[in-house]
Design a binder for these strands. Structure first.
Length: 198
DNA sequence: ATAAAGATCATT
DNA sequence: ATGATCTTTATG
């Protein structure tokens, strides 16, 4: 019997962002938007640390209108527009004043698949349904207006479950501008999963 | 007020 | 490989 449970503040407010990014693999991510519940299993994440990590929007503790939410306590969303086209979904972590966040890069679709394929304009069993950071936000209905929402179970939230998944790491995708930090092994993904990005 | 740069994706 | 597309940020 699998017991589902929303993840609490304690989970997100730990100080090691890469540890949380790893722990998120295998958890559920849900949205309830326009009266449609959609979601799946997180299979790929990336950790970003605002204080030390040149790849982070908040490096080096850079406070702007966009990054301000990252300085809030963990358990909020950070949504931003990438390349003028795609909305990327992040989860803010750590304590107030620590600008860490985790980019969710791929999920394995599980709930509301018909709704997701309609939003994506892809066939219902297409492997490109949620296999990338811009794709999953489109499938889940996440928009810029969802910036700063708490992951409290009303609109966007995570749930624990009984899954035990083998996790692999690599350098992060698309952050070659980050110098030395581009090589950090801060991308986490479920091994041999068909719903990964790229 | 303007310019440059993207944590990507679909198409060629 | 390349083009799309537009917000955010920095600079003048």
């Amino acid at each position: 019997m699998i017991k589902n449970k929303k993840l609490g503040r304690k989970f997100y407010q730990r100080s090691e962002v890469e540890e949380i990014a790893r722990d998120l693999i295998g958890k559920y991510l849900f949205t309830q938007i326009n009266n449609k519940k959609t979601g799946g299993i997180i299979v790929e994440t990336e950790a970003y640390c605002g204080e030390t990590d040149q790849a982070s929007h908040a490096y080096p503790n850079k406070l702007t209108e966009r990054t301000s939410i990252m300085f809030e306590p963990g358990g909020l969303t950070y949504v931003y527009l990438c390349y003028g086209i795609h909305k990327l979904f992040n989860i803010v972590t750590n304590q107030a004043g620590r600008a860490d966040a985790i980019l969710v890069r791929a999920i394995e679709p599980q709930f509301g698949i018909a709704t997701m394929s309609k939003r994506r304009k892809t066939s219902i069993n297409s492997t490109s349904l949620t296999s990338g950071p811009g794709k999953l936000t489109q499938a889940l209905g996440i928009e810029l207006l969802h910036y700063g929402l708490p992951l409290d179970g009303n609109i966007i939230w995570d749930e624990d479950n009984g899954l035990d998944i083998e996790i692999t790491t690599s350098k992060r995708i698309g952050v070659d501008y980050a110098g030395k930090d581009a090589l950090l092994p801060w991308r986490f993904f479920a091994r041999d999963n068909q719903w990964l990005s790229v």
